[in-house]
Design a protein around this nucleic acid. Structure first.
Length: 969
RNA sequence: GCUCAGAUGGUGGAACUGGUAGACACGCAGGACUUAAAAUCCUGUGCCCUUAACAGGCGUGCGGGUUCGAUUCCCGCUCUGAGUACCA
């Protein structure tokens, strides 16, 4: 039989499912290996060809590791809480559970037909009570913990209470809120239970905090930052405003240093590590207190302004202090004369949106408060300004302005005519721009004059500390993470409120089930959807927390649940965790670099501190697969204005590359182009991609999406004959020139390619190999099916190796020839080298070479072909299983990978490339036993070589054994 | 602006530690089989010049350098993509 991929693939997929071929045991003689794919959200659109790329790579790796004798855990599941199902529920009233189930079914069907070796007995879904029970349980552990800086780890809250009982707050070194109280043990004893709760909440690793959220009144919901674009909701384009709300937060900042240090211990792509480093944003510097010298100091809550600086050495160059306009001290510092100025400026700042404020970094603005501080190092008076380039949320919301060393400060000083003081002799051209150099010796700097940078910094840090006005300090940019959203489709937070204070439900009451509600919208009073749940009260009287957990909750620990997915007593058994330890290989997209991958590391470290897990880092090796992009075709729409009638604007379609669009004549009238950059997307399946041309007939069919694009203009009517500037091809047919553009594959771009179609046409094995053949795994690349035929032909050729002309299966038991063994062992070695370094594309080429060679050798040798089947099986498992069983064998998935024998690759001779002055001229076959002297003699004795030398004497001869001969003349 | 990644034929890409650049595949051209087409098979295919052929020149984004020898290492630049952005 010819290669019947459809039957073969169905047969073996059924076989694997029925025999639970890929079920991983939690105990084994074999070493463990854990291969994990990033948790997918089962979207309604199903899989497109980009999704399986990483899964195919991880599957090849898993299958390869099984052959290499590892006990492999390779699970799959669904991060099934999420916004799209909820959005659909809002629109249609259908419960998100139903949508989610249906989507998962589609996903599963699509995954199954690609032939993945997942252990489905360990499937998890974050939206199932049996799973989210443990997400809630982890939340409770966080609530019950505090971060002890002395032991540098999280501890149970009871150890904090013990400290409060024994010694009050003085001894406690914790990561906590800024407004914690100082008290003696005797005070603690007199606190009411409520007072104690309030105080403890300031230490807990998850706590309530007033935070600003993106509130969209039209949608009645809170949006994540990435759902907001330019101040409008991405979906629907409704205005979004900032609103303050009490929100749950996670004290991830406690782990900032460990999250940073841990990066050095894991094998991750450098860009991801770099992104996390930037996100954590560690700055080493100093905090300095400047004493306030103000008129109405009675209004002040403190008599100093604290700044954070990374250049404490420049403190003698300070010529002003700038506070963020939102800084608490601003109103108290403002003098009567400056009051109007300051209020005016604050009003102006408030008007500017967050985005304007960030985008407009060029304009210098600010206002003087009228007050001064005293520079502690030289007792000079320094004016206090406010300006919006200082951010309230970073450091202390105050900076010291050193114009000679910092460009922003320099611009500010220039603009407001403040002094620019040179502080290092190496600073150049500080009248033109700031010079941030650390070179040279200090000048104008009193007691650090003539010091160098390092010396000055450490001296000043000590000096400031001794004077009690500052100290060395490390600052992190990373803020605590908001943990909650005002949505329905998420894990309920296991908390109820009594007298306005949060308390945990009892552990045995978990899971706290997501209640049924009538509509998936906020209540009339603006409370989250859970507020609609009838009679949903703790012990029938206390309000539950109404927000649910954010998307990242369920995905921050899921790899542990896979180890022991059915466990009802623990999130995973001690034995399973001890055995599987951590993820050896994690494959996924780089879009999770600072979200999921950071939160997961945080929860992992926390669980380790409490002794529930054993590893400090969850993911030992990470690979980012590149994005498979889609190609969209654009047509340009150009607006023309009638020069004689300025109010009349016409939208016209035009091809690309129209020359000189400044003035053109249509229908006898002169028009001026007023906008030439509106573009619309043409669905790829309807356009003729090959020619990038959209013909008149095709355009007629497409008119609807283009129409929608235009419909912003009232009464726009398109006359296909006159409003479109057609090009004419050689055959006289009208067309528009389209511009192909590479973009993310998405439904809205009409460029999605569904793998089902390809599997139908070529089969899963071809799809698997073709996706790998496209190029390096990490690289992003546009999808095209140009080469898929080649891969399909390869599999047929491979199939034919085992068959005669009449498609009868035929192999022989002869002793393999030297050439056959060479071809075989080349591929045995190549594939193991390639897979170990995740270079899957190169092994596909090598398989083709091997099959070409064996075909040329007319090899029908059982021994050779059997090994070849095993080597190819991780890539094309179905065809290999079929051939393996035709060869009379069983259990291909756990067969040992063939042993590479270098002896088969050894050659007696090598065709040396002979170069003259580094240019390759010819090949000359020489015995590999020859050393430098014999080899050069043989080369020089060759007539052809002498011909190239043209009688000149060689100056030098380079001989690298087995590589090259280079003659220098 | 900053950080990171990248640039090789008509296309996707290969060349792993400095050692024959363009493997493998697509596409294209020619041929075989066929009434014809599809499928399949064979041959050729970096560019340029010349040629009947041999042979020659140029070639890994651009300009330099190190080296017997550079796609690979170093310096400078251009372009593309990704991330990030008043972070003190």
């Amino acid at each position: 039989m010819d290669y019947q991929f459809k039957e073969i693939e169905q047969k073996w997929q059924k076989f694997w499912a029925e025999n639970q071929t890929f079920k991983a045991d939690t105990s084994s003689e074999k070493p463990k290996y854990y291969v994990l794919d990033m948790f997918p959200y089962p979207s309604g659109a199903g899989l497109h060809v980009g999704h399986p790329l990483g899964y195919i790579a991880s599957d090849i790796f898993s299958r390869y590791k099984r052959l290499k004798g590892f006990n492999v855990l390779h699970p799959m599941g669904y991060d099934s809480f999420g916004l799209p199902a909820e959005q659909y529920a809002i629109q249609t009233g259908q419960h998100p559970v139903i949508t989610t189930e249906a989507n998962i079914a589609t996903y599963r069907r699509q995954l199954d037909q690609i032939g993945f070796s997942f252990d489905w007995s360990k499937e998890v879904r974050t939206s199932e009570p049996g799973y989210y029970k443990w997400t809630q349980w982890i939340f409770m552990q966080l609530f019950n913990s505090w971060y002890n800086l002395e032991t540098d780890k999280a501890e149970d809250i009871t150890t904090l209470i013990e400290k409060f009982n024994a010694a009050g707050s003085a001894d406690v070194k914790a990561v906590c809120d800024e407004d914690v109280r100082s008290f003696m043990p005797s005070d603690w004893a007199t606190f009411s239970p409520e007072e104690k709760q309030i105080e403890l909440l300031k230490y807990r690793l998850t706590y309530l905090k007033e935070s600003t959220v993106n509130w969209c009144p039209a949608l009645g919901t809170v949006l994540a930052n990435d759902e907001v674009k330019d101040g409008f909701s991405e979906r629907g384009g409704y205005p979004v405003e900032q609103k303050k709300m009490m929100q749950w937060s996670m004290r991830i900042s406690a782990y900032a240093e460990r999250l940073l240090q841990g990066l050095d211990t894991i094998d991750w792509p450098e860009p991801v590590k770099e992104m996390q480093r930037n996100w954590i944003g560690k700055s080493v510097g100093a905090s300095v207190r400047f004493k306030i010298n103000a008129q109405n100091s009675s209004l002040l809550t403190q008599d100093y302004i604290e700044v954070f600086t990374t250049r404490v050495d420049t403190i003698f160059g300070v010529s002003f202090i700038v506070l963020a306009p939102e800084h608490d001290l601003v109103s108290a510092l403002t003098t009567d004369e400056q009051k109007a100025d300051i209020e005016n400026y604050i009003a102006q700042t408030k008007k500017k949106s967050e985005l304007d404020r960030m985008a407009d970094t060029k304009t210098v603005s600010g206002a003087f408060t009228g007050s001064y501080v005293i520079n502690p190092v030289n007792n000079e008076l320094v004016p206090i300004w406010i300006a919006d380039y200082v951010l309230a949320g970073y450091g202390t919301g105050a900076v010291m302005g050193v114009p000679s060393g910092d460009q922003r400060d320099w611009l500010f000083a220039k603009h407001f005519n403040l002094p620019i003081i040179q502080i290092l002799d190496a600073q150049k051209d500080i009248e033109v721009e700031a010079d941030p150099t650390k070179e040279g010796k200090y000048i104008n700097s009193d007691f650090i004059n003539n010091f160098g940078y390092k010396e000055a910094t450490s001296y000043l840090n000590h000096w400031l500390e001794r004077e009690g006005v500052g100290k060395a300090k490390v600052n992190y940019r990373m803020r605590d993470a908001i943990f909650g959203r005002q949505r329905y489709w998420g894990e309920p937070i296991p908390v109820y409120f009594k007298d306005g204070l949060p308390y945990l439900v009892k552990e045995e009451e978990l899971p706290l089930m997501l209640p049924e509600i009538d509509k998936y919208l906020p209540t009339e009073s603006g409370e989250p959807p859970l507020g609609r749940a009838e009679g949903w009260k703790y012990e029938d009287q206390y309000e539950y927390e109404l927000s649910t957990m954010p998307g990242w909750a369920g995905s921050s620990w899921y790899w542990y649940r896979y180890m022991d997915a059915q466990n009802e007593c623990d999130f995973a058994s001690k034995e399973a965790i001890a055995y599987w330890k951590d993820v050896d290989l994690y494959i996924g997209g780089s879009e999770h670099a600072t979200g999921h991958l950071l939160y997961s590391r945080f929860w992992n470290k926390f669980l380790k501190d409490l002794g529930y897990v054993n590893e400090e880092e969850p993911f030992k090796k990470l690979i980012n697969q590149g994005m498979i992009q889609g190609v969209s075709l654009f047509v340009k729409i150009i607006a023309y204005q009638d020069i004689n009638n300025e109010s009349d604007v016409f939208w016209k379609y035009a091809s690309f590359d129209e020359k000189d669009l400044s003035d053109i004549i249509i229908n006898g009238n002169t028009f001026r182009v007023i906008s030439a950059n509106r573009e619309t997307i043409i669905p790829i399946d309807k356009a003729d991609v090959k020619t990038d041309r959209l013909y008149y007939e095709g355009f007629r069919q497409l008119i609807a999406p283009v129409w929608n694009f235009l419909s912003g203009k009232d009464g726009a009517q398109i006359d296909l004959e006159t409003d479109v500037i057609w090009r004419i091809d050689n055959a006289g047919k009208r067309y528009l020139q389209l511009r192909p553009e590479v973009q993310k594959m998405s439904k809205s771009k009409f460029n999605v390619v569904n793998p089902d179609v390809l599997i139908e046409q070529y089969g899963a094995d071809t799809l698997r190999m073709y996706e790998m053949f496209l190029g390096p795994l990490e690289q992003s690349k546009p999808w095209n099916t140009n080469g898929i035929e080649g891969v399909f032909k390869f599999l047929r050729k491979f199939w034919r190796l085992f068959h005669n002309e009449e498609w009868v299966f035929i192999v022989n038991d002869a002793i393999p020839t030297k050439a056959e063994l060479k071809a075989l062992h080349k591929i045995i070695k190549k594939v193991q080298d390639d897979v170990e370094r995740f270079s899957f594309n190169t092994s596909v080429s090598s398989f083709m070479i091997a099959v070409n060679e064996l075909t040329d050798l007319k090899c029908k040798n059982r021994q050779v072909l059997e090994d070849l089947v095993v080597v190819l099986s991780p890539y094309a498992p179905h065809i290999c299983e079929e051939l393996w069983s035709l060869l009379g064998n069983k259990d291909l998935s756990h067969t040992p990978y063939p042993t590479f024998n270098p002896a088969h690759l050894e050659e007696a001779e090598f065709a040396y490339p002979i170069s003259i002055n580094g240019k390759m001229k010819m090949n000359l076959s020489l015995s590999l036993t020859l050393e430098q002297d014999e080899a050069t003699a043989a080369v020089l004795a060759n007539e052809q070589v002498q011909g190239y030398l043209e009688g000149k004497a060689p100056k030098k001869i380079i001989f690298v054994k087995g590589k090259i001969v280079n003659i220098v003349v």
